[in-house]
Design a protein around this nucleic acid. Structure first.
Lengths: 117, 117
DNA sequence: CCGTATCCGTATTGATACTG
DNA sequence: CAGTATCAATACGGATACGG
């Protein structure tokens, strides 16, 4: 009974994890090894320094991404998924990916049909 | 190989389905029977007429929601999920719901920890 | 009841240039 | 390389009032 309401309620806060344009893409970009900031930026593509910083701050604040800096001559910082971040990637994000694989065509068809009409 | 790139690419367009604040909530609200506009609005709560209209137009254009109007004395219009919309609900959206059930606490803990520090 | 139009405050984005 | 500061553009959400 309360089940549905709770889900709906939490859903609203959960959706914010996907609401910011770049946050999910950062997570996907970090699916493999830890990446340096510059590499991460290039891996995503089309994101500005400022926005990437904001995105990383949110992800850090939510415990989805971890930051590690090395005291070296050329400054080095690496970002990686936390275990929690990885569950988000392998759960909801992967589910969305699978859904798209199976329904992207159908989605496109509907979009074109509505433009025609 | 191309697999990952394709997923990433599609993911960007797929994420737009969740990017607009109210779209996913409309889908969840329509999980049961078809609803009249007013009922739908109340079921969601906190959404304005204008924004609800925009949201419905997007969902209609994407083939996720269907509109049916009845030629009756008090105008009646009902909105319902399409089969495609239902797959989105039962796939990615449900996955997010499940993830939240299992990790909401962990997420909150991380958020509070970062505020404290 | 259904839907649209208008106005407005705010948040998000992005380009650029600058500091450590 | 990493990260911040500033400024401009705009997209989004919301209140209200009006038309079918």
């Amino acid at each position: 009974m309360t089940d549905e309401l709770i889900v709906d309620c939490q859903l609203r806060s959960g959706l914010e994890l996907f609401a910011h344009t770049w946050d999910p893409l950062v997570i996907v970009a970090l699916r493999g090894e830890p990446l340096r900031r510059r590499v991460l930026k290039n891996a995503i593509g089309g994101v500005s320094d400022k926005v990437l910083t904001e995105s990383l701050h949110r992800l850090l604040a939510n415990g989805l991404v971890a930051r590690r800096s090395f005291a070296e001559a050329p400054p080095r910082v690496e970002y990686a998924l936390t275990p929690l971040g990885r569950t988000l990637l392998e759960g909801p994000l992967l589910a969305l990916g699978h859904w798209l694989e199976g329904h992207a065509e159908e989605l496109l068809a509907a979009q074109e049909a509505s433009e025609a009409g």
